[in-house]
Design a protein around this nucleic acid. Sequence first.
RNA 1: GGAGAUAUGGCAGAGUGGUCGAAUGCGGUAGUCUUGAAAACUAUUGUGCGGCAACGUACCGGGGGUUCGAAUCCCUCUAUCUCCGCCA
Length: 423
Amino acid sequence: MIELNNIRENHKEIIKRLKIKNFDGEKLISELIDLDKKKREIQTENDALLNKRNTISKEIGNLFKSGKSEEANALKNETKSLNDNIQELKDSFSELESKIAEILYQIPNIPNADVPLGKTPEDNLTIFENGEIQELPENAKPHWELAKELDLIDFDLGVKITGAGFPVYKGKGAKLQRALINFFLDEAETAGYNEVIPPLLVNEESGFGTGQLPDKEGQMYHATEDNFYLIPTAEVPVTNIFRDVIIKKEDFPQKLTAYTPCFRREAGSYGKDVRGLNRLHQFDKVEIVQVQHPKNSYKALDEMIEHIKNLLEKLELPYRILKLCGGDLGFTAAITYDFEVFSAAQEKWLEVSSVSNFETYQANRLKLRFKNEAGKTELAHTLNGSALALPRIVAALLENHQTENGIKIPKALIPYTKFDTIN
RNA sequence: GGAGAUAUGGCAGAGUGGUCGAAUGCGGUAGUCUUGAAAACUAUUGUGCGGCAACGUACCGGGGGUUCGAAUCCCUCUAUCUCCGCCA
């Protein structure tokens, strides 16, 4: 969430910037400033009372020690009314505090000044395009047909075992998954990321830390018995490694990568868009996460973009990079770049990666800080990106690399699949 | 799942009602000494909130209670450890 200090000092600028996200923060923020002012007044008042009580208590102690119990008992009465007062102030203080928190949770991250204006995905800015969009043979098929014919993925079997959106990968289809995961992890390691294997279920606190909670619990599966959530992305457990951490500045940057399955409920979308691998409830993803000194976070973002470009080029897929417009930007992101690959047989672009800088928004929730040059604690910046999400990559690989003799595996991937064709 | 024990600063570890934000040791930082380093010595060294600051205030696993006053007493939750059971 946004830092209260920042809102106190720059509320006009913040309201203006939030408009890029099509978020009207005027009312909430003025309410916030009001509550904050009241809260500080109460604290000052209460601190003075507490000070008084502490002083008196000490005196009582001393009096008892020197045997003057009558005087001590007289003082006791004095603290009675003080305590009533203190309790009252304490109550209104915590009430104000929770009201403030509640409002802060409702305000999205401030978009970077560089974020383009716009309301819908159509307004996203294509900033880069690479790779030939190849001519496919006349009888080119979409991936769900290819997957069925080649017996790579069994969607119906998944329906039987669990439900729609939980496919079963078989034979070379399963091996292709494993190959991609290993390929992505190796590439991330080469780029300096340390691999971790985090839990796939997280507690409530972790959900708050990265911004899935409150309000967005609908996207997550919830194990109510133990109040755990199935992770929608490795971002959640991996970023929460740094919850409540003060890192040494020489430990910057922190670069982690993790392969995990991801679970998304994603209710409410039907039809062609969710066909085959386009949208699943369970899918595999390799995530990259960075914790950075604020000075370097945008450099790190560029580096992450380069990393993902490299992956797509090695997979020989035509892709483009979009800079998300304000309206399409996520709640917690300051800026986001989406990577899309072209699905030849479906004749559309599929999102395969999303790279974001959250600046201090998550760090503030996580209390992820470092000591700056002046010795003060300061919030770090967090970033993450998919590198990459598997299903749509698989879809694009099948569709784009289909030939009359089967599916051709890109050269970079053959050492991992140990086969060069699927037929 | 059953029984018992424990939870204190970066770490180890004292502290069982007031003078405790907390002894001591290790570690960190700065300095003295040294050509330099080590050793030794000296000082300093948690976090949040309010305040320009002085300073005030809160925090001893979390929450609640008793008390004029709680790290210390009571209740409760959670985590860890040991033993038993079960299991991969």
